[in-house]
Design a protein around this nucleic acid. Structure first.
Lengths: 203, 203
DNA sequence: CTAAAATGTGGACGCTGTCAATATTAGGAT
DNA sequence: ATCCTAATATTGACAGCGTCCACATTTTAG
């Protein structure tokens, strides 16, 4: 499709990409529909042909983020398939943190305040990512590596720790005594190790 | 000070309260400086006498949130001083989640994207809250209840799990298989239990 | 008592999200 | 090929927003 034609051709995709880039470079606070439209070279109302409102576009970006995260988790699980499930779980944690650090735009948007009822496919995409962790945990339980607690519970705990760590990392800085010259990836490893090992003397 | 006088008398405090209420009732997306000013009965420019801009007001609300959270942690630590440190840590977790559920306005704001460099007293207030957890962990280590890992590491893990859980709870709904009719408080207990017990077979 | 500092007001500007009406194009039925 | 319709993009308008400026009012210090 001609670039200068009246019809853009793939505006919906261009909006997703443009919004994502703008969030990454200017922060979600400074992202506006009109600026995205301007950047793409389209009128300020064109986006409404593809998204009901600004929130719907953001929710779509978030959904895309979950899908990409799921893909990366699949990749790393595949690549570590010869290792132990615990190693796989650690690799998933590292992948999660690396993904959020490399794609801060998604981080700003994936756990935003979009009511799940209004965006069921977003809820679905989020669940799909979590499912990957649950599967690894379940396999680890079958092979006897991981305690036979509720796998959803275990995966959920890891999931939330990862989410908590990445959102706090985003703020710019953690309390200095928490960071102490470690990279985000190292931090993730160390924090997950605490979970893996348990903190009670008699586990 | 007379209510209808030219000078409000305690506008700064009124702004903090008003902003907090508006965030709680309408969400942070729908909170505006002008609406807060209108509700208080003051001109749309009066807030600028006390806060450099909107972000500064939000950061101040966030700081207040950390201070209140610290207070509640102090209270519960005091009240459970006769119990084991593990019980204290669990009580802190419950308090954290309850605080975030009861004060959703603070949750929306406390871990927002305010660069810590720009608001050092906010960073300080956040650190202060975390410090309470670290102290409990350190005591638990001294008494032999908690493994002698780096206490900052252990407390940080709990801290991040709590943060992750509450921000995800805020979205309205967790994946249904994760909730299964548990209250937020129950969820927090159960997730923290996973951390406490450790998930590896041989801890 | 008066000058200066603190606090609050009113108006303006550019930007935003969104609505309504209109224009342009694409694609299928004839 | 042509016409109709649906899809797509545009222009214009509106209220609300954050923020800057000049000005008004009040408090406070000397």
């Amino acid at each position: 499709m001609n670039k200068d034609s009246y019809h853009h051709g793939d505006l919906k995709h261009a909006l997703l990409v443009g919004a994502c880039e703008m969030i990454a470079t200017e922060g979600i606070q400074n992202m506006s529909l009109r600026k995205v439209a301007r950047k793409i070279g389209v009128s300020h109302n064109a986006p409404y042909q593809h998204f009901a409102d600004k929130e719907a576009l953001l929710a779509a970006v978030a959904q895309e983020g979950f899908q990409r995260l799921t893909d990366e988790l699949d990749t790393v699980i595949e690549r570590t398939s010869t290792q132990s499930c615990v190693e796989q779980l650690k690799a998933c944690g590292n992948t999660y943190i690396k993904f959020m650090m490399d794609n801060s735009a998604y981080l700003e948007v994936m756990f935003g305040p979009y009511p799940y009822e209004d965006y069921p496919e977003l809820a679905e995409a989020g669940l799909e990512s979590l499912q990957r962790l649950i599967a690894v945990v379940a396999r680890g339980q079958a092979s006897g590596e991981i305690k036979s607690l509720n796998p959803v519970e275990v995966a959920g705990t890891v999931w939330m720790s990862l989410h908590g760590l990445s959102t706090i990392l985003r703020n710019g800085k953690l309390p200095p005594q928490l960071v102490s010259e470690r990279t985000p990836t190292q931090l993730a490893s160390d924090f997950l190790d605490v979970i893996y090992e348990g903190i009670l003397v008699q586990a």
